[in-house]
């Protein structure tokens, strides 16, 4: 294994650049280094002006998502040696406006997320619980994989529908809605339905499945969306066929 590798990093400085350009950095190639270690090496030793987001270095915070050689990846979980001998292209996540260098503006997602009410909703008539709401292991399994989402935006970056139509609610927001819809302690699925089953919600998804392919936490948002399509379609059928009292 060679002991150096080149990172071809996207630079964009809004005060001086009209469009993003690429800059190459030659860094040490160590077998235990992930792409993020390479970027930190650049920042610490070669070019302190490079901007990118990171925090936990262990696949929990969801901050360090970038496009590595054309694929959305968490850079803290992507080893440099997998791309040897390089060069490796490091670009900001696609489908989001670039703020600076590798930093993107995820405000669109942050505005969409609360619309699906991703929290436990209980009936307003109910008195506050005196003890915890119990849940069987099987009931927890129903939603557990959707609760693994770390909002890293790799799924939005990979989604070809979101690339064409930014009004699409998107994979993570829908998977997070399902995380609560499928929770036995939640009573809010009716409140989430209007947003989820709108034209910009689940119905915009054409089941390409890239979101699930790139998810670093194995969440399967595409599965969540397909499952919810069936729920919403059955609900629409019931509304059409059954009298009001029997729904």
């Amino acid at each position: 294994m060679a002991d150096r590798i080149t990172l071809r990093v996207t630079r964009y400085r809004p005060e001086s650049d009209t469009e993003p350009t690429a800059q190459e950095y030659d860094i040490p190639l160590r077998k235990e280094w992930v792409v993020l270690d390479g970027l930190n090496h650049i920042k610490d030793h070669l070019d302190g002006t490079l901007s990118y987001r990171w925090s936990c270095r262990m696949g929990v915070c969801g901050s360090c998502g970038m496009i590595v050689n054309g694929e959305p990846k968490l850079t803290c979980a992507t080893f440099l040696k997998e791309y040897a001998p390089g060069p490796i292209r490091i670009e900001p996540l696609s489908n989001f406006p670039i703020v600076r260098d590798l930093v993107v503006d995820i405000g669109d997602f942050m505005r969409k997320l609360p619309r699906v009410k991703p929290w436990l909703i209980r009936s307003e008539q109910e008195r506050p619980a005196k003890e915890e709401h119990l849940q069987l292991p099987a009931e927890r399994e129903e939603y557990e994989q959707f609760s693994m989402c770390i909002n890293c935006m790799l799924c939005y970056s990979a989604c070809p529908v979101y690339a064409l139509d930014q009004d699409f609610l998107g994979p993570a927001a829908i998977a997070l809605a399902q995380r609560y819809n499928l929770d036995s302690r939640d009573q809010g699925s009716a409140e989430r339905m209007d947003v989820l089953s709108s034209a910009d919600g689940i119905w915009a998804c054409t089941f390409v499945g890239e979101c699930s392919a790139v998810c670093p936490k194995d969440v399967d948002p595409a599965g969540a969306i397909q499952r919810y399509k069936f729920t919403a379609a059955m609900d629409a059928l019931k509304t059409l066929l059954l009298p009001r009292g029997a729904r």
Partner: peptide
């Protein structure tokens, strides 16, 4: 309309 078209598609 979309839910019904999707049900037909799915079936």
């Amino acid at each position: 309309m979309e839910p019904f078209l999707w049900l037909l598609f799915s079936a």
